Simulated assay, not measured.
Amino acid sequence: MTSPSAVAPAGGSTELAATGAGSATPWAIGGAAVALGAGAGLVLAARRRTATGR
């Protein structure tokens, strides 16, 4: 039985495969973070509004 480090790569290259993540990925993650923060802010504002309205 051979250890995994002794096995040569099938393609003969040691480069990593491309992940498919494009240049817009950071913008999409940033947009999702902004939307999440805005939603959390709206929930907190609504809770405060109903708590003081009682």
Rank of each mutant, 00 (worst) to 15 (best):
G20M: 01
A46Y: 09
P26L: 03
S3N: 11
T50M: 14
V43T: 15
A45K: 12
P9R: 08
G31M: 01
V7Y: 04
G31P: 01
P4S: 08
S5D: 13
S23A: 11
P9H: 07
G41T: 01
R48K: 05
M1H: 12
R47A: 13
S13W: 11
A46H: 04
A33V: 09
S5M: 13
G37A: 14
G11M: 05
G11Y: 02
G20R: 00
R48M: 03
L42A: 14
A32G: 05
A38D: 03
A38F: 05
S5P: 00
L42M: 14
I29P: 00
G11F: 03
A6V: 07
L42I: 11
R48Q: 02
A24T: 07
S23N: 11
V43Y: 14
R49Y: 07
M1Q: 14
V7W: 04
P9C: 10
L36C: 07
G20E: 03
A40G: 08
G30P: 00
S5V: 08
G41R: 02
T25D: 10
V7S: 01
R48H: 04
G11K: 06
A6Y: 06
R47F: 15
G31T: 02
T19W: 02
A21P: 00
A28P: 00
G31C: 05
R47S: 12
A28T: 01
T50S: 15
G53H: 15
E15V: 05
M1W: 12
L42W: 12
A33M: 09
T25V: 15
G22K: 03
G12N: 13
